[in-house]
Design a protein around this nucleic acid. Sequence first.
DNA 1: GCTGAGCCTTCCCACGATGGGAAGGTCAAG
DNA 2: CTTGACCTTCCCATCGTGGGAAGGCTCAGC
Lengths: 151, 151
Amino acid sequence: MNIGEAAAASGVSAKMVRHYESIGLLRPPTRTAAGYRQYSESDTRTLKFIRQARDAGFGLEDIRQLVSLWQDASRSAREVKRLVEVHRSDIADRIRELQSIADALSHLLAHCHGDDRPDCPILEAFGSDTPTAAAGGRPVSRAVNKRRVAR
Amino acid sequence: MNIGEAAAASGVSAKMVRHYESIGLLRPPTRTAAGYRQYSESDTRTLKFIRQARDAGFGLEDIRQLVSLWQDASRSAREVKRLVEVHRSDIADRIRELQSIADALSHLLAHCHGDDRPDCPILEAFGSDTPTAAAGGRPVSRAVNKRRVAR
DNA sequence: GCTGAGCCTTCCCACGATGGGAAGGTCAAG
DNA sequence: CTTGACCTTCCCATCGTGGGAAGGCTCAGC
């Protein structure tokens, strides 16, 4: 199966399939005489796995470990659980951070009349010396990837 | 005041101060004969404003608009409110997305014994065909910046 | 056979926000 | 005059993804 087909079957773009190969996340597949990559069912399973882990917000370094655990019959579930717990905790941190920003914005929005007049507590808050948004002061948070999509 | 002092006073790194200037977010300051940037109180106020908006998760493009509204005495609060509402809604989307991932992970974690044995529902889920984490299927979300910090 | 569409290849560039670091100039205190 | 702390510009890296150029391959239809 060519890369396009493998991409369609796994939900990972062909561009990313090549990228994953280039960073050693996916085994280099066999090639046809003309140099076309040929993927097996097993490869598409791995790609699906990667995609699911990406959708769960894991970074590629974590995924590298998850894939290797997944493929290791003698793994211990402890390892996996630890990785996932750390990630869940990162996400929880990120949620708290975003929530505190959202709360601050909601508060400001509630006090902004939003008509044609220029006075606006939001700009006043950003222009003042007292910290407005993010939880304590400096923002914290390990990764937990973004992702943007046309809408 | 030199860039280092302005940076310390505003909480924005000197590196970022130069960057903001290079992308037109901050007026180029006057320079000494030797080429050193000289900042005024007004500049540090702008930098503080930018920093607060960054802490509230705004992207630099939004901040460009916020700064220009802030400095425009004849602005209408409507404009500001609209920008902030869109941002709050983006954050809310992002929170929902992260929460649905966190919920899925929690569910999986609850079913993983996490001992030395290799069987693990987490890997099984990622290896299966049924979508595991992210809300509907494809991840959604406009920016809402990351931020990472040593810890 | 030949042509064209639609694949595929590699390579480079971009995003957004930030930091690291090199190579070199400047300034103030000793 | 030296030393160290500052400043300058310039390039590179991060992370995950996409865009696009320039060129090669394949297959279906004529």
